[in-house]
């Protein structure tokens, strides 16, 4: 191909597909992900997010502003998906999560460009975060059929009984994802919850909801059943209290530096004796592989212990 032809092609299709003379811009509506479907907020509200980097800094796009009822719908979907997801074999859950890693790998360029324009941290930083995120997903996929053997135990008891403890998922976990890093943080918060058979409702980073929605597009094509992972965009302080009060939510995973909101959510969670896991985000190094360790799974597991008479 001649240099002249190449230049002409580049002029017709710029890397971001925008700004071609005479072509109408096709902009994406960033919708929330509930029960395996991308939907608008039932409230009809949206908010605007501005590109901080990438090809068109200053570009403004609309993102759904979730309401209390979106939270309710998401919990309903998560609750309905619980039995099916927990009932799959650990091996199958691992396969599905690995496939999520495969899909993200194939869509690395898209995830990178989302991160780049939303964070303004530059292409290299974005690329590095996407690679780390894919690797983290693969790590958790590997955990799916291994953590059970490490956490289960055969306990000594004073009598002629076998006494065995096995880990089981808790049910629906509400996750407030870290504000940043918006993708690696999201992956590191959500994967340890769902790998063991829990389902979740995630409140995406307020700073960068678009990368989270694009991540959900990977989830949607990964064979993960609808409702296992539900993602809401918008204001955490508006929706999280309703999740903390919701009686069908078993645990809260709060990646939040807002001490006041954390205290409010903890207080609300008392009524239903929810398990609350608090994490300061500022001091976490999300690149640390220990975040993909066994201890990341244990907060959202219950140990079931059963007795069986010996000699039968």
């Amino acid at each position: 191909m001649s240099a002249k032809k190449k230049a002409a092609d580049a002029a017709i299709v710029p890397s971001n597909g925008a700004a071609v003379p005479g072509r109408a811009r096709v902009q994406k509506a960033y919708k929330i992900y509930i029960g395996g479907a991308f939907v608008r907020s039932e409230s009809g509200r949206y908010f605007q997010v501005k590109d901080l980097g990438g090809d068109e800094p200053g570009l403004v796009e609309n993102v759904a502003l979730s309401s209390r009822k979106d939270g309710r719908d998401a919990v309903k979907a998560a609750h309905a998906a619980g039995a099916g997801w927990a009932g799959k074999t650990a091996y199958n859950r691992g396969q599905i999560l690995y496939r999520l890693g495969e899909v993200m790998e194939a869509r690395r360029a898209e995830l990178t460009s989302e991160l780049e324009r939303s964070t303004g941290r530059g292409r290299d930083a974005a690329r590095e975060e996407v690679l780390a995120s894919v690797d983290r997903v693969i790590s958790f996929a590997g955990w799916a059929d291994k953590y059970q053997s490490l956490l289960a135990s055969s306990n000594p008891v004073a009598g002629p009984h076998f006494n065995v403890s096995v880990p089981e998922p808790m049910g629906v976990v509400a996750v407030v994802a870290p504000r940043r890093p918006s993708l690696l943080g999201l992956v590191s918060a959500v994967l340890p919850v769902i790998v063991s058979g829990n389902t979740c409702v995630v409140l995406a980073s307020e700073e960068d909801p678009r990368t989270a929605v694009t991540f959900c597009e990977c989830v949607a094509t990964s064979d993960m059943p609808g409702g296992v992972l539900n993602l809401l965009t918008g204001k955490v302080s508006e929706v999280a209290p309703h999740l903390a009060r919701h009686m069908e939510v078993q645990a809260l995973d709060l990646w939040l530096d807002d001490a006041e909101l954390t205290r409010e959510l903890e207080t609300l969670a008392v009524a239903t004796v929810k398990r609350v896991k608090k994490r300061g985000v500022a001091e976490v190094d999300f690149r640390d592989d220990r975040l993909a360790g066994l201890s990341s799974l244990t907060p959202f597991l219950e140990l079931k212990t059963f007795w069986h008479p010996m000699g039968m």
Partner: peptide, 9 residues
Amino acid sequence: TQAYQGADY
């Protein structure tokens, strides 16, 4: 109660 209820209750 202003809290969404669970069928288990």
